[in-house]
Design a protein around this nucleic acid. Structure first.
Lengths: 243, 243
DNA sequence: ATTCCTTTGTGTTAGACTTACACAAACAAA
DNA sequence: TTTGTTTGTGTAAGTCTAACACAAAGGAAT
C-alpha cells in the first residue's frame, strides 16, 4: 500500500482507500503467504502484504485482483473480502482505509511475477513470519488466518489450495497444517467422501506404503460453499484495533 | 449516506467513504430495522439505511457509533462490522465506498432521537420492508440479516436484542422470529441452561398459563462470543454485486 | 518367492449428542 | 374443584462422533 515516493498526497480532504491482499499458498506442505519488501518510507525495507490504491471507478474486488495479478501473474484464484481496517493512525502519513482480501493460490501455480528483485518478494511460512511487518499487517494476517481456519471446517476452501489432482492423504495433511492438529484418517476420509465432492481419477504412489488414489474436486455447489463441518464452530473475533 | 444537497462534491480524485448502519431491534416480538426517508436526490423520498461520511481522522467504528447515536440517541449498543460495499456505480453521483455495520438495540430502549419528522424515520419489520430502498441498501439489509441469522446459532447475539431481564419463552420466541422456524422448547431450554449464561432473578406471569422465571444474561465470556450451536452452519454468501 | 515394513483404505463399536415427545408443575378462570 | 394454558423437566430412540482395529497394496530386504 502507498507504494512509490510521496504517492497519494493529493490534499487530504478524504481518506484514501486501498486494498491489501493476503495471498495464501501451500508450499512444502506448509501454509505460506506472499510478502513484499517496501522500497520507500514509511517502513522502508520492511515486509508488507501486497496492496494498492483503489482507482476512482474500480470495483473493490477488481482492485484486489489487479494487485494479485501484478504480483503473481495469476487470475482465476479464490478471492474473498476479509475485513476493512480503518484505524485513523494505521498509516503515519495520511488517513488510509484498507479493505483487506485474502486469496488462495493452488499449490501447482504459485509462481511470482517479475517486476521485483527476488530479494524483495517472497513466500513466508505462516509459522515463521518476519518479526516486523509494515503498518497493521500483522493484525490483518492474523485475521486472515483465523478466517481461513474457521472456514476450513465448514467449506471446501482447502481444495483451492491443492493442485487440481490430489490424494486424500494430501488433503488431510493440508487440513492438519492449517488447523494445527492431527485428524483421524478414517473419520476424515469418510466425511469427505460423504460430502460427495470428489471425482476419482487414477493411481499414484507415495513415500513407502500403499499408493493413494487420485481425485479431482468436483462439486455441484459453488466453490467455497457450505459442505461439511468437522467440529465446534470457532469464534472469529474482530481485530483488536477496532474494538 | 450522502445527505444534504450536493454534499461531498469535492473534486473526486478519490472515492468517498461512508458508513451505513443496519440497526436491528425487536418490536412486538418481530425483528425491525430503522430506516430514514431521504430528503434530497438521488432517491429523494425513498427509504434508506442511516449512514454518513467518515471524517478524515475518525475511526470507522466511531463513525458508525456516531450515526447510531444521531438517529437513536443510544450508546453502548452491540455493533459489528458487516461488509464493505464498493460497486463503482452504487451511487449515481460519485464513487462512494460504504463500510456497512449492523447494530443490535435492546427491546426496552429503541426510542428514536429527534431531528426528524416522524414520517421521515421509522422502524420496519424485516418481513415487510418497503419495496424500494435507496442505493444497494436492499442488498446490505439482506446481508445483515443473513449474518445475524447465522451468528444466532453459535453466539449469544440474541441476548443483545432483549431487555435486560427476560424469560426463556421470550428468548425462544426471539430465536424463532429471527430464524423463521419453531424450536423445540425442551431442547432449547436445555441448551441455553447448559451454556451457563443465565442468572435467575424472580418470577413473572404471562398470557394464560404458568408464569415464566426471569433471568439476566450473565456471561463470563465476552458478549457475542461463542457459546453454543443449534444446527448446521449456514452459508454466508458474498453479496451478488461483488461477485 | 516370502517376509517385513509402511501407508492407504474400510469396518466397527462405545459413547455422546440430538430429536421428538410425554408428563408434571404452576397459575387463571370458570 | 375442575379445566385450560403455558412453563419446565424427563426420557427413549435415533443419529452422529471418536477411537481404534484390521485388511489391502505396494516396496524392499532376505
Amino acid at each position: 500500500m502507498l507504494e512509490g515516493p510521496d504517492a497519494a498526497f493529493a490534499p487530504p480532504d478524504r481518506p484514501a482507500v486501498t486494498v491489501d491482499v493476503v495471498i495464501f499458498t501451500l508450499q512444502e506442505r506448509d501454509l505460506h503467504v506472499l510478502l513484499l519488501k517496501r522500497r520507500y518510507p514509511p517502513y522502508q525495507g520492511v515486509w508488507a502484504i501486497p496492496g494498492g490504491f483503489v482507482k476512482l471507478h474500480e470495483a473493490l474486488e477488481h482492485a484486489a485482483r489487479r494487485e494479485l495479478e501484478e504480483e503473481t501473474g495469476l487470475h482465476d484464484v479464490y478471492l474473498e473480502q476479509l475485513y476493512t481496517f480503518g484505524a485513523p493512525d494505521r498509516d503515519p502519513r495520511t488517513r488510509v482505509i484498507s479493505v483487506a482480501y485474502f486469496a488462495l493460490v493452488r499449490a501447482d501455480q504459485h509462481q511470482i511475477n517479475g517486476s521485483h528483485e527476488s530479494s524483495d518478494i517472497g513466500w513466508f511460512s505462516t509459522r515463521s513470519l518476519p518479526q516486523a511487518l509494515a503498518f497493521d499487517h500483522h493484525e490483518i494476517l492474523r485475521f486472515a488466518l483465523d478466517r481461513l481456519r474457521s472456514k476450513l471446517e465448514y467449506t471446501t476452501l482447502a481444495f483451492q489450495l491443492l493442485s487440481e489432482v490430489f490424494t486424500l492423504p494430501e488433503l488431510k495433511q493440508t487440513y492438519e497444517q492449517i488447523l494445527g492438529e492431527t485428524l483421524d484418517r478414517g473419520n476424515f476420509y469418510r466425511k469427505i467422501k460423504e460430502a460427495g465432492v470428489l471425482e476419482p481419477v487414477g493411481g499414484q504412489r507415495e513415500s513407502g506404503g500403499r499408493p493413494a488414489a487420485l481425485y479431482r474436486f468436483c462439486s455441484s455447489r459453488r466453490e467455497g460453499d457450505f459442505v461439511f463441518r468437522w467440529r465446534e464452530a470457532r469464534l472469529e473475533s474482530p481485530p483488536e484495533s477496532e474494538r
